[in-house]
Design a protein around this nucleic acid. Structure first.
Length: 461
RNA sequence: UCCCCGGUAGCUCAGCUGGUAGAGCAGGCGGCUGUUAACCGCCGGGUCGUAGGUUCAAGUCCUACCCGGGGAGCCA
């Protein structure tokens, strides 16, 4: 494999022959010389190829090149006399590998992100999406590194599931039945006993329950995989298909979970800042000029920790008028979360001990019998980025909670069984991977931090 | 799903109180001895989101629908 532009630009000094392959960002032609800016996606920067009449292919090829053309160029790596780059390639030959039509939609000029979504097959070639995909990659790697270094074992939780988990969101059905003419049972209802899995099946909304199973054997585990929600929600923070990171720890309580969440975010931010400095510089310059300061802040400042009750007090006492009411027992709204993290504390905030009525059945019931061991991490701009809890590991308490909420115990038989055999305190959280990338890059719309977004009414590409 | 805003050239937009569509960039051609989203000149390019309606006349006003954006709900 040939040397990437990233590797060439990282050379200690000029000199020597190089060959690069990539796509033209722009071509500047004057009478005796052409400047080609070539990118291969290996790093934010492209490399400048300078071709004159002595270059093989100058008249036939180089003069006709424009934005988008795929080329192969060979020559000598030299120090650039122009400002704007340290090295450039003095070309001895340039060959066209793949030309572009007159209707090639990408210009060297800035495009709107909305337009780029309509050409998702070409948008990775833009500065912005290229940077997003490199940061996304670095973030995924940093996540694996964090857990692997600490002895967490990755669990591959299933994509197809029969249970609807915590009942979170609407589910995508998985079926091989003929939708035009499904088999019916005696009462005329669709007979899923004849379906592929002999039961109604769905795409997973979370790997949590499976992670709990694994944690109660391997102690420290995590999942990192796609999840699916069929909610008709159309916002800049929601996708129908997104990736979720879910660590789960045995012998861990809520405090331990909060420490893990903070160490996790700090290290991931640190690693991505080390891996993608040019990309982050670009986001800070062109997308959101607070990105670098925010990243530094997350790495350096301790997170604020407070209980739900304290959060309510702060919100009640402040002189801000909120659209939605603030009262103990009501869930925090987006505006409340943003006020706390963006304005009041100006840093990530860890809120714990929520009222049991607004949280899921599996969360640990505190001694006050009113609150549960829930934990949310709120960050500026994005809002809730992590949601987690200490799990209820006491069989009788869990059965009571299931009954209180009117859930069917039968459907959770194996989840309950885990509490009958070797049950221990355990805790875990879920992190929306795209929201993390949004936070890192400052991208306003979640559809622009995933290469192929799935949203209501649109799954093209 | 709800509320608000928008849809005009390939892209980004302008088009006033209704009078029959324009700029920059992109594209094509030509010029320019080192450019940095290069620059200069010329040229081509539009059923103004769709369907109805009002009017002598609709890009402009009205209605419905479609698509996009922002916010909210739900959540990650």
């Amino acid at each position: 494999m040939s040397e990437s532009i990233r590797e060439i630009l990282a050379r200690p000094s000029a000199g020597g022959g190089v060959t690069i392959r990539g796509w033209l960002r722009t071509a500047r032609h004057s009478k005796e010389v052409s400047f080609l800016e070539v990118s291969d996606g290996s790093c934010f920067s492209g490399i400048q190829v300078v071709a004159g009449p002595e270059c093989h292919g100058f008249e036939e090829t180089v003069r006709a090149l424009g934005t988008g053309c795929a080329v192969e160029a060979s020559g000598e790596l030299v120090e650039s006399p122009g400002s704007g780059q340290s090295f450039e390639i003095r070309a001895s030959s340039v060959a066209l590998v793949g030309g572009v039509g007159e209707d090639y939609p990408l210009q060297k000029k800035r495009h709107s992100l909305e337009f780029l979504r309509t050409v998702a097959h070409l948008r990775p070639r833009t500065n912005t999406l290229g940077a997003v995909l490199r940061v996304r990659n670095a973030t995924a790697r940093a996540i694996h590194d964090f857990f692997q270094q600490r002895g967490f074992i990755q669990i591959h939780s299933p994509i197809i599931t029969l249970s609807d988990s915590e009942g979170a969101g609407d589910l995508f059905r998985v079926s091989t039945l003929d939708v035009e003419n499904p088999p019916r049972d005696e009462e005329g209802r669709v007979d899923f006993r004849q379906d592929f899995f002999a039961a109604p099946a769905f795409l997973t909304v979370s790997g949590q329950l499976e992670a709990e199973i694994a944690a109660l054997a391997l102690s420290k585990v995590y999942t990192f995989g796609p999840t699916f929600r069929a909610e008709d929600s159309n916002t800049s923070r929601h996708l129908a298909e997104f990736w979720m990171v879910e660590p789960e720890l045995a012998f861990c309580d809520l405090d331990g979970l909060g420490e893990l969440a903070e160490a996790f975010l700090k290290q991931v931010f640190q690693r991505v800042r080390e891996a993608c400095p040019d990309d982050l510089e670009f986001f800070n310059k062109r997308i959101d000029d607070t990105v670098l300061a925010t990243i530094a802040h997350v790495i350096e400042q301790p997170f604020e920790r407070l209980r739900y009750s304290e959060a309510i007090e702060i919100l009640e006492k402040c002189d801000r008028q909120f659209e939605f009411p603030v009262r103990w027992g009501l869930d925090l709204q987006s505006e409340h979360e943003r006020f706390l993290s963006e304005e009041y504390f100006r840093r990530p905030v860890v809120v714990t001990h929520y009222p049991k009525a607004i949280k899921a059945f599996y969360m640990y019931l505190n001694d006050d019998e009113e609150t549960v061991g829930a934990l949310d991490v709120l960050v500026p701009k994005v809002g809730e980025i992590i949601g987690g809890s200490q799990r209820e590991h006491r069989l009788e308490v869990l059965r009571r909670r299931i009954a209180e909420l009117g859930l069917e115990e039968d459907r959770y038989w194996w989840y309950l069984d885990l509490r009958r055999h070797g049950s221990v305190p355990h805790a875990g959280f879920g992190l929306g991977f795209e929201r993390l990338v949004q936070f890192m890059t400052g991208m306003a719309n979640i559809r622009d931090v995933i290469p192929f977004p799935r949203v209501p009414g649109n799954a093209e590409f």
